[in-house]
């Protein structure tokens, strides 16, 4: 699992882009339906995550991310064991 600090950083990015307060964002929220992110802002989300943690995420991987849990799973795979 990613550590609490990383978890907080991800939720802060989500909150910055969606204008939903971090404490109101739930793990099972969908980026589009629940957080109101369109395709451009979803892409920016993944892009910001990749920069924040210095990981390289390719387009094919990025477009599969449609939920907060998928985003956390990606972070878990790529950050925790890096």
């Amino acid at each position: 699992m990613i550590d609490a600090a990383s978890h907080d950083r991800i939720f802060r990015i989500l909150s910055d882009l969606s204008a939903v307060p971090p404490q109101e964002i739930k793990v099972d929220d969908r980026l589009r339906e629940d957080l109101g992110l369109d395709s451009v802002s979803s892409m920016e989300l993944v892009s910001m995550l990749s920069e924040e943690f210095g990981i390289d995420i390719e387009l094919e991987e990025a477009v599969q991310i449609t939920t907060v849990s998928a985003l956390l799973a990606l972070a878990d795979r790529r950050i925790a064991h890096a």
């Binding site: 589009r32 339906e33 629940d34 109101g36 992110l37 369109d38 395709s39 451009v40 802002s41």
Partner: peptide
Amino acid sequence: VRRVRAAVLDALGVRL
């Protein structure tokens, strides 16, 4: 608010 935002995103890909 949430329903309208989701429906418009879904139908047109537009973020209000």
